[in-house]
Structures are given as C-alpha cells and as structure tokens.
Nucleic acid binder design. Structure first.
Lengths: 194, 194, 194, 194
DNA sequence: AATGAATGAGTATTCATTCAT
DNA sequence: GATGAATGAATACTCATTCAT
C-alpha cells in the first residue's frame, strides 16, 4: 500500500500561507517564509502546488467556496431572505473569530485588483445572486429592482467592511457583543436589498 | 541656468504609480515599470521620492486626504447628515468615473493589512467620526449607539464595495444611472447610521 | 536527502573576494564579479554571507586574526623579542609568496580609513602590544619608552610597506633571496623597538 | 579680457575630494558629494576634470609630487642623507598636522592596488632613489646593498605607517612631542638604509 | 560661464523555482 | 517521499556623466 499524502502538512501549508499573506500581502510573502512557518521544506510545497500563483488562487477559491457553499446551504434550508442574510453574516463573524487571518485574507483578495477571480467561482456567485433575486421576488422580501451587486454588498461587502475597519483602524472597544453586532449588520444589510 | 523641473513629470509619476499599483499591487509594481509608464527614468523618480515606500505612502495619504477634506468641507457647509452622506458618496462615484485607477488604489490599500495607515490620517478620521456622531446626536438624525465603524461603512465602505464588486466581478450593466445609484446607496448608507 | 554543501565553494568565494578586492578595492568590487570568479551564483553567496559588508569584515578579521594568532604563538614559544619579530616577518613574507592577493588585501584595508577595525580585534592587538612591551622590558631587549605604535611598525608596518612598495612600484628584481630579505627587515624592525 | 577661471573653486574641489575620499574611499565618494562639499555644481566640476578617475589621478599625482619635489629640494640643499631623511619625515608630519585629510588620502592611495601610479611619477621616484643611493655611497652614509625599496620605506613607508597606526587604531596619547617623534622616526628610518 | 535636471547603466540583495541526493 | 543547495532573473536604489537653459 502506497504511503498516504500527509494531509496535515498540506493543511499547515495552507494555513501558513493565509497567515503570512494576510500580514505581508501576496508578493510580500515568500515561498520560503511560508514553508518555514508550515514546518515543511520549500521543495515539499512544490510537490503539491505547481507555483506560488496556483497556491494563492487555490486558497482564494477555497475561501470564496466556503462562503458560497454556506449560502447554498442556507438557501436550501429556508426561504426567508432575512434568515439567509443573518446566517451568512453570522458565518462571517464566526469565521473572523475562529481564524482572523483567513478573513483578512479574504477581504484583502476580494479588494485586490491584481488577482483574477476564477471564472467558475464568478459564475457560481452570479447564479447565487440570481437565485436570491428570484426567491426574494417570489416572497416579496426584496425590492423590485434589486441587483446582484446589492446582494453582494448585503451578504459580503457590508460585514467584511465592518471587520476591515476594525482591523485597519482599530477604533472602538475590543469587547463586542457579537450577537448584537450580527443583528445590527443584518439590519443594515437588509436595507441594501429591501 | 539649469533646466527647469518639468512639474508635469511628477504628476505623471503619481498617476502611473496609481495605475500600476492598482493593477499589480504594491510589491508587484516595480519602480522601473512605474517610471516607464510615466515616461521618465528610474533615476528621475528617485530625485523626487526617497523610496518606493515613501512614494506609495504619499499617494495613499493624498488619496485619503482628498476624502477627509471633502467630508470636512461638507460638514462645514451644512448640518444635515444625509446631505453629508450623499455628498461624499457622490464624490466617490465622481472620483471613480474621473480616475478609476485612483479609486481602485484607495480600495486596495484600505483593505490591505500589510500596509499601515499614517497615524495622522487615522487620527483625522477618528475626529471626523466623532464630529459626525456629535452632530448626528444633536439633530437626532442618527441612532443613539452609532459608532465610528458605522460611519466608516456608511461613508466609505458601502460605496467603495459597490465599486469593488463592479471592478472585481463585472456583474451588471455598464450603463448606470449614476444619480440613481448615488441616491440608492445613500439610502442604504443612512440605514447604517440611522 | 538534499544536496550537501560544497565547502570548497565557500573557500572559492573567500579567495575570489580577496583577489578582486585587492585588485579593485572594496566598493569597486561587485558581488556579481566575486561570485563569477568563484564560479558560484550571486544567490549562493548570499546563502552564506548576509551582506557584502559582512563578507569583507569576515575576511579582514580572519586576515588580521591569522597574524595575531601567529604572534601569540610566537610569544608562547619563546621570550626573545628578536625571535618574535623575525618570526612574524617571516610569516608575512611566506604569506605574501603563498597568496599575494591576501597580503595586498591586508595592506589595503589596514591603510583604508573608510573601514572600521572590529573593536575585538583592536583590543586583541592592544593586548599583544602591551604583552610585548612588558616582556621586552623584563629581558631588556627593547628600549624604555617603546610604544604600541613602535611594535606595530616593527611587526606589521615595515614588512608590509616593503611589500607594498614592490607591488605598487615594481622596482627591483623579482628574484629575491627571501631569507636575506627577512633578515634585513628584521634588523630594521628591531631598530624601531630597541 | 576674458574671465579668469576661478581658481579658488578649483582648489575647493580638490580639497573636498581629498577630504571625502579619505573618509569614504574612492568608489565610496560620489561626485555629487564632492561638488556639494566644495560648494560648486557637479557640472562645474566636469568642466575642469573630464572624469572622476582623472580627478583622483590628478590629486594623487599632485600629492606624490609635493613629496618628490620636497625630496629634490632637500637633495639640492645638502648632501647629508640623514638631513634629507629627517627633512622629509618632518615634512610629512607637518603635512599631517596642517591637513590630515591630505595625508590620509596619500596613505590610502599608496596602499591601494586598484589605482595605477602615473608612469612619469614612478620614473621620478626611481630616479630620486638612484640619486640617493649614489649620494649615499659617495659619502658612505648608507650601506652597500641599499635598494630603492629601502629608501622608500625610510622616507615614506615608516613615517606614514606611524601616522596610519594612529589614524586607524587610535592607540597612544594624543599629545605628542612632534620634534621627538621626528627624531625617533628618523633614527629608525636611518636603520633601513645604513 | 555655471547650473542642476535628467539619464541609464550598474549595484546589492531577494526569491520563485529546480533538482541532486 | 522529502530536503535544502543552488540558481539567476528581477528589484530597489545609486551615481558618473551629459546637456538644455
């Protein structure tokens, strides 16, 4: 029986990449630094990712997938738009508290015009948007002329900018009432689509 | 007499920097590439900026200053928070249509955790936030527990995420009714503070 | 297992540095030129020396150490100052014939006021000087008011200037009677301390 | 009547060059820095020296000439070798106290194998050496087999190494009895040729 | 005459990537 | 499989030199 790939090493590479890239930016992060923080050799990294660019793309796609999958799940679970909105905002805040590096990484790359979004992901996001528009129209929970951008802002843009402001400017207290924050952001986000 | 400094060259360097950085990221943009696009030599650039870091900081500070100055002006002109909000959103959209690179540059750097905001700028932003909170409370146009972050997303976060979504995903039509957009986004942004 | 470090490469870098620096001066010697003469890549050099400055300092310290170590050894072996003086002069001439670049390198850097001597080396030299003064006074082989500078001249300055004159002006024949030269220089050097 | 060349500017360039080069080395000294310290423009400097290399060569030749001229003068004035030796040593010490930069510059370049001595100067030095050998033999004040190198270290090498040791290592007191030093060094230097 | 703006080749240093072991 | 030695192209920055004014 052939040796299994040591998935924990791969996971360490992924987490190390996210950490270092969120701290130093993409081009500011060297493969050597990533490998070192992951506790593997640079050569090992290259046996699993053909290039640094592919690694970063993979990570970004996964990060976006985790959000789209959650939205898909929420859509499958219930029809109420407000539940979907508060569900995804809760997910983002939870993700921020579990792994802030990962959230910073997502925010950074979603606002970085030097990296392209994988067309498949873009298409997936477009479909989610259209599904949500249709659903919203069916049960009258969104306004007539709501657009995909409006949903993007509501589900992703607003909560992430809220967190970005904290990370970037560090205003305000450090002790939040997370449940209250989620409720507040949900209310704001609903304004974007209702 | 020696040659006169060609001031247009400085401006060309600034614009080229903003363009290339918004396309390639900070570390992905080489001084040589910037100089070439500006039509000057790399050496020339260094006679006016002591380092690439200083150049980028200068550009970012100017970009942020242009926003804070506009907010200050709007605050000075009138007391209605909704006018201030729509004024700054209008300014951002106008800026996006005049010089999209500059706006991309701002969005990118505001969401990049590998660069620090100049403490002077951060303080300026904090003061603006507090002034707006006080004003809003005085005339009852904002809710009780509104925070600086709430104002940040209302004035900057939400309009910029709209634009980021367009730039990054390219959904939707290219022919906007800008006035209507501004009105819509103002309404959403007001939800963040009201 | 990864490739083994080829230790001969390090030695080649050291020798190439000494050669090129003795020919072109420190700032006149590029890292690229050194790497090329050593037959390694520039990147390789940087995996073993953190900077050009450190490389040069290392080489200079080693070169000075080789002299101070020899003096220490000679001091340990016998008490006669004249034996120590002729021993070190012999060592310098031997070194010049084995590796003239290395000697040129030493001469150059000892007479270059743009580089600092490592304080540890300076202290070592001072201590050697004081030991020699004490020893010399004990057995009456040096004059009363002999100073550290006098010993510096005797042990290092005079033999090296003799060689510098050859290298720089190229007077005289190329076929020396080295033993006689050493004897002559020793006699002159003894005048500096007796 | 045509405007005269402003000789004071030229002199300032020369002195500034000597100062900066003695502090930073040849390649470590930029033309811009030299021009600035001289209070002239870089362009002005280039109207009088075709290149940095030529400037440095000129300065070195002048520095060596000032020594050879003094030796020639001393030879013309008297026949006693010891008077010539003490005369030139006195001249070097005087020069060191009037303009230490200049002396450091001379020491550095005489021990720098990356710059070539002008063949005319070398020939002049050789002739001086031969004259001194002949004179010394005539009046029996030097030993039979004395060489040009012996004279070089007696007249230049030994006094300059004394000064180099002070500059480089900073041993010893700062308050010398210059007359006594000159006498001491003359005695040592005479050993090199007697 | 004198300036200093402008250049571009050159320098030290880094880093993605390869490959011998 | 896994390593890390080795590479060399790329990057930020400097500086001798030129030339328009």
């Amino acid at each position: 029986m052939a040796k299994k790939i040591d998935t924990s090493k791969i996971e360490r590479i992924r987490q190390a990449s996210v950490e270092i890239i969120s701290e130093c930016g993409i081009t500011g992060s060297s493969v050597a630094a990533i490998a070192q923080r992951a506790g593997v050799s640079a050569g090992y990294l290259y046996r699993h990712y053909p290039s640094k660019v592919k690694l970063v793309n993979d990570l970004l796609n996964d990060a976006l997938n985790s959000i789209t999958e959650r939205i898909d799940a929420l859509i499958g679970e219930n029809d109420r738009i407000d539940r979907i909105v508060s569900g995804i905002i809760g997910f983002i805040f939870e993700s921020a508290s579990l792994n802030p590096y990962r959230l910073k990484f997502q925010i950074m790359l979603l606002n970085d015009f030097s990296t392209e979004i994988d067309p498949a992901i873009r298409e997936q996001i477009r479909q989610i948007g259209e599904t949500l528009i249709r659903k919203g129209h069916e049960n009258g929970s969104v306004r007539k002329n709501v657009s995909i951008e409006d949903f993007y802002i509501a589900l992703v843009g607003i909560p992430m900018q809220y967190l970005a402001a904290r990370y970037k400017f560090g205003f305000g207290a450090n002790d939040w009432d997370i449940a209250a924050e989620i409720e507040k952001i949900t209310r704001i986000s609903m304004c974007a689509i209702k």
